[in-house]
């Protein structure tokens, strides 16, 4: 598959009064053309920061993208782009859908204007045509009566409808990559499924690459072909959805999976939660970041950073358990 986006050793920090918060500490993954990838992890694991960095939305300062980080979009390092190039890239090549559509939409502008302004910015069309395009996009995301809806304000829409509007804005100008940053977290469960289905349909219909960012492994199963599991600013495991769901290697991924409710599970089986809290990113632990909560934790996990192991093609896991010395006590 042709690669659309390559994130290479991305490191992002934020400077705060208490010190440097190392939000993203060396993240690498690829997204192919038209491919759907999910980034999964708890809140604060750096997944949203990664998404915002790809969109160029990190403010510097207080943010800092460390030297050596690279994000290649169609072969160009977007981190080295000028402000003008960024403006062309944002929206036209890549767009984002935020978690809370109510906050992400401008409350005092009509929905039509918020879509049309993007269309007019990137394509040379008249205002009337831009509003026509806005109506078409609203229809595309499943909003009935678009001619009336374009004249309305965000507060006149329901939560699910607002998120559809966000998606319509993101789809305008046919970007090659759509980032959905927790698009369903603020919604009711039934509406969540609708939005996920919509994203999946659009991805296939428009052959658009999608990065779905979520803390909920349950919703990514049938959307994403590839899953990246993040913990404490690092990728701990990545692979195809079958790799992650059926042959997961990292104790953190396994723990996450045990926390997802399953229809096929025995009704008496309890859902497990992961004890403890993620480490503080101002002073991250020396070894494996998960070692403080890991049930399999070994002495070396607390002193040395684990290496990457590749299992099947593209299934990569960072864990000391797969070192030859650990084979013995794994069985034990």
């Amino acid at each position: 598959m042709e690669k659309l986006l390559q994130v290479k050793d991305l490191k992002v920090s934020f400077h705060s009064y208490a010190g440097e918060v190392q939000s993203v500490r060396g993240v690498s993954f690829d997204v192919g053309v038209g491919e759907a990838v999910a980034i999964v992890g708890e809140s604060g694991c750096g997944k949203s920061v990664t998404a915002k960095t790809i969109m160029g939305l990190i403010q510097t300062p207080p943010g800092e993208i460390k030297a050596g980080s690279e994000i290649l979009f169609e072969g160009t390092n977007i981190l080295a782009m000028t402000e003008k190039e960024w403006a062309q890239y944002r929206g036209a090549s890549c767009s984002i859908v935020f978690q809370d559509a109510l906050a992400a939409l401008n409350p005092t502008l009509t929905v039509g204007r918020q879509i049309a302004e993007k269309v007019m910015l990137h394509t040379k069309v008249s205002k009337a045509d831009a509003y026509k395009e806005a109506e078409r996009l609203l229809t595309l995301v499943g909003i009935p009566n678009p001619a009336k809806r374009v004249k309305q304000y965000p507060h006149e829409f329901s939560g699910g409808m607002r998120q559809r509007v966000m998606i319509a804005i993101a789809l305008a100008c046919q970007p090659k990559l759509l980032i959905a940053d927790e698009p369903t977290t603020a919604l009711d469960v039934t509406i969540q499924a609708d939005i996920i289905d919509l994203l999946k349909d659009l991805q296939q219909q428009l052959n658009m690459a999608v990065i779905l960012i979520t803390h909920d492994l349950g919703i990514v199963a049938d959307v994403a072909k590839k899953i990246v599991v993040m913990y404490s600013g690092k990728v701990v495991e990545k692979g195809s959805n079958t790799d992650i769901f059926y042959r997961s290697k990292h104790p953190y991924t396994q723990a996450l999976l045990r926390a997802v409710p399953r229809l096929d599970a025995d009704e008496n089986q309890e859902l497990e939660s992961i004890e403890g809290t993620p480490p503080n990113l101002i002073a991250p632990p020396v070894g494996c970041p998960f070692s403080t909560r890991c049930k399999e934790c070994m002495n070396i996990c607390q002193t040395q950073e684990p290496p990457e192991y590749e299992f099947e093609d593209g299934h990569i896991c960072r864990c000391w358990l797969y070192h030859e010395f650990a084979q013995g006590n794994k069985e034990a």
Partner: peptide, 25 residues
């Protein structure tokens, strides 16, 4: 506000955001 991020992600420049979005609010 997050809508500023949305506007940025549309590719609108700093000036456009100031006059088109922030000023009115």
């Amino acid at each position: 506000e997050e809508y500023v991020q949305t506007a940025l992600s549309k590719g609108i420049g700093k000036r456009g955001i100031m006059y088109g979005h922030v000023l009115k609010n």
